[in-house]
């Protein structure tokens, strides 16, 4: 499988701040990848480096095997949907839809128009007058309809309600199935997108703290809950990542169980459940806390 994006020792410094600090990773072609982390962790800087918007201080980044900076071959395969995108003076929704095709060789105009209707945008509406959610919708439509071989969404759903977000996820999956491409999704709503992702890269304080297939991550831990004594007995010889008690009840997050272990746990009156990807990431990445997870 070809690698779409590779980074080796990638670093971006602003003065004494290491926004991205000696980062190396490889994103396989044609996958949906989550770039996860707190606000200010370095997600946006990393995406700017990948898309040639920002210049690396040291190290290098390659997209489709080449340096993206000022490289028209690579740049024409990219679509970077930014979190707070500015648009030209007095642009209306229809202007965006009429200009974008000139930038994206694979643009699907019919699909774009359908999305405009589905996201209930008024084509004559000025971009400036759009609500935050509607502005997000414009970015989502461009990102999806661009069909760019490397499409990057930076917190694409700000201001969107749960239904609109679900609509986005459904479209993302359906369109990705029909037109496979590399999609990088930066988000802090980890659990909402967990099942969409094939791979997760977690960045904190400019460094990558976790880089693994989501399946593997999810399979790496479970929670067992039940009477505190039973839980304690069961997890005694295991690697406990997290332990919580409430009255006589306890919940523990432990490494994955074999089928036999599951049976033992069930027989002991314990309930085995999933660990949410978000919880897992918090546990595995040294405990960054998501104090705010609201959209």
């Amino acid at each position: 499988m070809t690698l779409t994006v590779e980074a080796h020792g990638l670093t971006k410094r602003y003065g004494s701040l290491h926004a991205v600090n000696d980062v190396s990773f490889a994103i396989p072609g044609g996958s949906i990848v989550g770039l996860l982390g707190r606000n200010g962790a370095g997600k946006t800087t990393l995406m700017q480096l990948i898309t040639g918007q920002e210049l690396a201080t040291t190290g290098d980044v390659r997209v489709l095997g080449e340096n993206p900076v000022e490289n028209p071959r690579v740049m024409s395969t990219l679509c970077f949907v930014k979190e707070a995108q500015k648009y030209p003076e007095d642009f209306r929704v229809r202007h965006v839809m009429s200009v974008a095709p000139r930038f994206f060789p694979n643009w699907d105009a019919e699909y774009a128009e359908r999305l405009v209707d589905e996201f209930r945008l008024n084509r004559k509406q000025r971009i400036k007058k759009l609500s935050r959610g509607q502005l997000s919708s414009v970015g989502i439509i461009v990102g999806l309809a661009s069909r760019a071989p490397v499409t990057i969404f930076d917190e694409p759903y700000l201001g969107l309600d749960a239904i609109a977000r679900q609509n986005f996820y459904d479209h993302l999956l359906a369109d990705y199935s029909e037109n496979p491409r590399t999609i990088i999704l930066s988000t802090h709503l980890i659990d909402e997108v967990a099942n969409l992702l094939e791979h997760a890269i977690v960045i904190d304080d400019g460094r990558i703290v976790l880089d693994a297939p989501v399946d593997e991550l999810r399979a790496s831990a479970v929670t067992v809950s039940g009477p505190a004594s039973a839980v304690d007995a069961f997890v005694a010889a295991r690697d406990v990542m997290h332990h919580q008690t409430l009255g006589g009840l306890a919940t523990a997050t432990i490494s994955a169980l074999s089928d036999a272990d599951r049976v033992t746990a069930t027989a002991a009156g314990l309930e085995v459940g999933p660990v949410s990807l978000q919880q897992l990431i918090i546990r595995r990445s040294g405990g960054w806390t998501t104090e705010e997870v609201s959209a």
């Binding site: 779409t4 072609g29 080449e66 071989p149 496979p180 590399t182």
Partner: peptide, 18 residues
């Protein structure tokens, strides 16, 4: 498996420049 990029060339590299 959905693994074929849309406009990249056979080697999976960057396409010809516009």
């Amino acid at each position: 498996a959905p693994t074929t990029p849309v406009t990249t060339d056979a080697r999976g590299g960057a396409p010809a420049s516009r």
